[in-house]
């Protein structure tokens, strides 16, 4: 499955648009991490735990996007966009959406 955030795929021709596909996930880190983050708010620096958490959830969201696209019979998802929102204390939603298409070699 080809994933790209461009509107076109270089060297390939889009033969069919199959509509929008999306994937989302809401994740939270355990309380210990949150306490560590509270300390970090005094000292500053990178919050490795949260970086990890968000990239894991992003991967999962992309997986769901791919599943949806595969169910539609697409072989590529183009024009992919990410969006993040923190919905509650310590939990955040990762949302990814794109257009499922069929591409073929030119």
């Amino acid at each position: 499955m080809l994933i790209s955030n461009m509107e076109v795929v270089p060297g390939k021709r889009i033969t069919q648009h199959l509509g929008m596909v999306q994937g989302s996930t809401v994740r939270a880190k355990h309380a210990g991490r949150d306490i560590m983050a509270g300390f970090k708010n005094i000292f500053g620096g990178e919050l490795k735990g949260y970086t990890e958490l968000l990239s894991e959830s992003r991967e999962e969201a992309i997986d769901r996007l791919k599943q949806q696209a595969a169910a539609l019979g697409a072989n590529a998802v183009i024009n992919v966009r990410f969006s993040t929102s923190s919905i509650a204390a310590g939990a955040s939603e990762i949302f990814v959406y794109g257009t499922a298409v069929l591409v073929e070699d030119r």
Binding site: L2, I3, A37, I42, G44, R58
Partner: peptide
């Protein structure tokens, strides 16, 4: 072509 991303969380002091 393929999608790449990089992310970071930085805390204030």
């Amino acid at each position: 072509s393929t999608l790449v991303c990089g992310s970071v969380v930085i805390s204030v002091d």
